[in-house]
């Protein structure tokens, strides 16, 4: 078995010491510190990021709450305003309507009075025309001018009968 050649032990051990010693130094001084640096900084970074995420999340929660309160306030204000406006509009409309109605009533009364006057005038003319016509007819028929009193009496009766006056 070549493993039991004692003459070969020394060179193996010498080179084992050299290579392993070198490896040990390289790992301890160069390689491993670099790895641990990176691992540490990554852990630090992740922890920081998580903290930041949590903080931002809390801020978002607060913002949401503030938003909700603001929204509720605004809605309440809008409601109040709406109610007020509606009331105001209604009062104004009612006032305007009342005014218009009053004006209309006035105008109607005026018109009625005018009509009455016109009618009365017209009625007066009717009597005159009827009187003239009756005088004319009687004169033509009888050849004689009728008595004024008798004519007036007949006219009054007829007009009353026709419902004028």
């Amino acid at each position: 078995m070549p493993q039991l050649e004692f003459a070969d032990f020394a060179p193996q051990l010498v080179w084992l010491a050299i290579t392993f010693g070198l490896l040990w130094i390289l790992m301890a001084r160069v390689a491993l510190p670099r790895v641990s640096d990176v691992l540490l900084s990554r852990e630090q970074r992740i922890t920081n990021d998580l903290d930041a995420a949590e903080r931002l999340n809390n801020e978002a929660q607060e913002a949401l709450k503030a938003y909700e309160t603001a929204l509720a306030e605004a809605r309440a204000k809008a409601n109040a305003l709406a109610v007020e406006t509606r009331a105001k509009v209604q009062t104004e409309a009612e006032a305007a309507q009342a005014e218009a109605e009053a004006r209309l009533a006035e105008r109607a009364a005026e018109a009625e009075a005018q009509i009455q006057a016109a009618r009365n005038e017209a009625m007066g003319n009717v009597r005159e025309i009827a009187s003239a016509a009756a005088t004319g007819v009687v004169t033509q028929l009888l050849g004689d001018v009728p008595d004024d009193a008798a004519l007036n009496a007949v006219l009054d009766a007829e007009l009353a009968n026709a419902g004028v006056n």
Binding site: A7, P11, V14, W15
Partner: peptide
Amino acid sequence: IDASFTNSAAWM
């Protein structure tokens, strides 16, 4: 001491 560079040392 025999510190010869051997095939073993090469692979180390």
